[in-house]
């Protein structure tokens, strides 16, 4: 099992600061979502982690080792960074054969991953003629080739059809469930909410938050508790005294912010108020993301 650590990572491109003193860790066994607006430094961070660009300051390591110091990195780390990083005149299968030969992997592994990503039927066609979804699948096949314990995927769901998105979700969960370390960036926040257990959010190259998905959505202002009671006025007064923001919606319905469901239940019991419904509603990841990055 491998832990990724980004420590005080800083990257300047001329006068532009792409990543600014960024630190976070990615632990094995969970899918970690990596979110940020366009140009926030996600791809730069991933490329620094993979040794494709040199940090100005700081480090990005796998269990304390830089990528370039890993022995047989393709056997430990699989990465997808660009959907169209193929020679257009080379077939999908040959693209993978080249990688397998260089990584000392058996040729049968190529056919295995082509089957895994559902590209076997198109394996002999030139990659230049693939759709975006097929290119993504080929890139994922390349990432999976060495059966790695770490997956680093930049926007892997781009261009995938609904079946492909579900397949990707199952694949990432399966890998994480078997102890793999998975870092995945995506702009598809609804999809990310279904995949990720932890989320790292950055903006302008700086860390905004790193927490469990539920904690991030729960902390967002969109989080609320819906309740229904025949004594709405009494309960509303009690909740406001306890610091809650309460709005009444008629017919005994109240919407409460700033208090969680257990607290509301306790306050209702202490006020001797009967509850007919108590439903916590968290903010969506999209709500939380927009709030964090605005």
């Amino acid at each position: 099992m491998t832990t990724l650590r980004i420590e005080h990572l800083t990257k300047h491109f001329g006068d532009t600061v792409a990543v600014d003193d960024l630190s976070f860790g990615v632990r094995p066994g969970v899918v970690t979502g990596f979110l940020g607006p366009n140009g926030s430094g996600k791809s730069t961070t991933m490329r620094a982690l993979l040794g494709l660009l040199a940090p100005t300051h700081g480090s990005a390591t796998f269990d304390g080792h830089r990528y370039r110091d890993l022995r047989d990195p393709a056997h430990r780390v699989g990465a997808l960074l660009e959907a169209d990083a193929f020679h257009p005149g080379r077939s999908g299968r040959d693209h993978l054969r080249v990688l397998a030969a260089a990584a000392r992997l058996p040729a049968r592994r190529v056919d295995e991953v082509l089957d895994t990503v559902g590209l076997a039927a198109a394996a002999h066609r030139h990659a230049g003629g693939y759709s975006l979804g097929m290119k993504q699948r080929l890139g994922l096949a390349g990432a999976l080739l060495g059966d790695p314990e770490v997956l680093i995927l930049d926007e892997p769901a781009n261009g995938l059809d609904p079946q492909g998105v579900r397949w990707l979700r199952d694949l990432l969960r399966h890998h994480a469930g078997h102890g793999a370390t998975v870092l995945v960036s995506s702009h598809l926040l609804a999809e990310m909410a279904l995949i990720a257990e932890e989320v790292v959010v950055i903006r302008s190259g700086r860390l905004i938050t790193h927490d469990r998905l539920e904690a991030i959505t729960g902390a967002a202002t969109g989080a609320q508790v819906d309740l229904r009671t025949p004594q709405a006025d009494d309960l509303a007064r009690a909740l406001r005294r306890a610091g809650g923001e309460v709005s009444a919606h008629g017919d005994g319905r109240l919407v409460v912010r700033s208090l969680d469901a257990p607290s509301i239940g306790r306050i209702a019991r202490e006020a001797d108020v009967e509850l007919h419904e108590l439903t916590p509603r968290t903010a969506s990841l999209e709500d939380a993301f927009l709030e964090l990055t605005s």
Partner: peptide, 18 residues
């Protein structure tokens, strides 16, 4: 030059970072 043009140099360097 072709590897750099098609960005296949990235997958090459992911297999061997040297």
């Amino acid at each position: 030059a072709t590897e750099l043009r098609h960005h296949t140099i990235v997958s090459t360097l992911l297999v061997d970072a040297s």
